[in-house]
C-alpha cells in the first residue's frame, strides 16, 4: 500500500466523474431483499473465532455514509480505550489512522459505520469486499444498522445529485451484529469488540437480530402491539432526539423527531432479554 503522500491526487471533478460513470449498482442491490449469502455463518465461524482469540484479532473500521459520530463514540471509552486498542491488531481506519485501502487479507472483525449509498460504487464495492474478507461484520450505530438519518435523503443535492439511496448495510450483505443508536453508546461498542475478541457468543447473540430498518414505531408494532410493554420509560430515556414522551405509562413517538436509529427498541427490556445469570455475573458481581 503506498503512503498517502505518494498517492495520485485527483481533482474533485475527476472523483465525481468516476463515481457517476461507475455502473449503477442499484439493479443488483435490491433494497430490502434478502442479502446475498456471501458470509461465513456464525455457527461455522465459532470454531474459527475460538482459535483467533488466542492471537490478536485483525480488525478494521470502515466509514461509509455517516457522520463519524459512532467512531468518536468508540474513542469516548476514555479509561479503557488504550486497553481496547491493545487487544486488537488494528489494520484499517481512515480517520484515526491513515490507511486508505481496504486490506486484501482476511480480517477477523470488520466494524462498519455509516449506511451504504447505492449510487456510490466505491461504497458498494468496499462493503462487498469487506464482507467477503471478514469473519464477523459489525454494523456500528444507527446509520450502518438501520439507515438512521441518512434514510431521509432524497438526493438531488450538490456535489453528487445522483446520491439518493442510503440503505442499512444489511440490505447489501449479511450483518452479523448490529449496534443501534445515534451514536451507539461507547460502552456497548467496547463490550462488543471485547466479546468478539473473546468469542463471547452469549453477549453477541441478541445483536444478531438488530440489523435492518428501525423506527420508533417498532415500539407500537413489536412491543405494545404484542402486549409486551410494561411502561418503564427506558425507550424514552434512550432516544437521542427526545422523540418519545411517556404519558400514562406508554411511549408516544413524535414521528417528526424520530431519526430511525433503533435505540429505543434495542434498549427496551422487552425486545431481547439477557438472562438473569448474565446480569448477576456481569453487572451485579454475584455468582
Amino acid at each position: 500500500m503506498s503512503p498517502f503522500w505518494k498517492r495520485e491526487k485527483k481533482s474533485d471533478a475527476e472523483n465525481i466523474a468516476e463515481m457517476q460513470t461507475a455502473s449503477p449498482p442499484a439493479a443488483e442491490a435490491k433494497t430490502d431483499a434478502a442479502p446475498p449469502e456471501i458470509t461465513v455463518k456464525p455457527a461455522e465461524a465459532e470454531a474459527e473465532v475460538k482459535e483467533m482469540a488466542a492471537a490478536k484479532p485483525k480488525v478494521l473500521t470502515a466509514v461509509m455514509s455517516g457522520c463519524t459520530g459512532c467512531l468518536i463514540s468508540l474513542t469516548d471509552n476514555y479509561d479503557i480505550l488504550l486497553d481496547l486498542l491493545d487487544a486488537i491488531d488494528y489494520r484499517y481506519e481512515t480517520t484515526l489512522a491513515d490507511v486508505r485501502q481496504i486490506p486484501d487479507d482476511q480480517m477477523d472483525i470488520a466494524i462498519v459505520h455509516g449506511s451504504i449509498c447505492l449510487q456510490d460504487k466505491r461504497q458498494v464495492d468496499d462493503i462487498r469486499k469487506i464482507r467477503q474478507n471478514s469473519t464477523f461484520l459489525v454494523a456500528m450505530g444507527g446509520c450502518a444498522g438501520s439507515g438512521c438519518v441518512t434514510r431521509f435523503s432524497v438526493g438531488g443535492q450538490s456535489a453528487t445529485p445522483s446520491h439518493e439511496s442510503f440503505v442499512p448495510v444489511a440490505n447489501l450483505v449479511k450483518v452479523d451484529f448490529a449496534l443501534p443508536g445515534c451514536p451507539t453508546g461507547p460502552e456497548v461498542i467496547a463490550n462488543t469488540i471485547l466479546a468478539a475478541v473473546g468469542a463471547d457468543l452469549e453477549y453477541l447473540k441478541p445483536l444478531a437480530e438488530l440489523a435492518g430498518f428501525a423506527c420508533g414505531c417498532d415500539l407500537l408494532t413489536k412491543i405494545i402491539g404484542n402486549g409486551l410493554c410494561i411502561g418503564c420509560g427506558t425507550c424514552a430515556m434512550a432516544c437521542p432526539t427526545r422523540a418519545i414522551d411517556m404519558a400514562y405509562g406508554r411511549p408516544h413517538v413524535n414521528q417528526e423527531l424520530c431519526i430511525k436509529c433503533g435505540a429505543c427498541y434495542a434498549q427496551c427490556p422487552r425486545s431481547f432479554e439477557p438472562t438473569f445469570e448474565m446480569i448477576e455475573k456481569r453487572v451485579m458481581g454475584v455468582e
Partner: peptide
C-alpha cells in the same frame, strides 16, 4: 422487577445510554 431489570440490561448493553452504566 421490570424497572430494575431494564436498568441492568441498559448497563450491559448501553445502546442509547452513554456513560450511564
Amino acid at each position: 422487577h421490570c424497572l430494575t431489570y431494564a436498568v441492568r440490561k441498559m448497563q450491559l448493553y448501553p445502546f442509547g445510554a452513554r456513560h450511564l452504566p
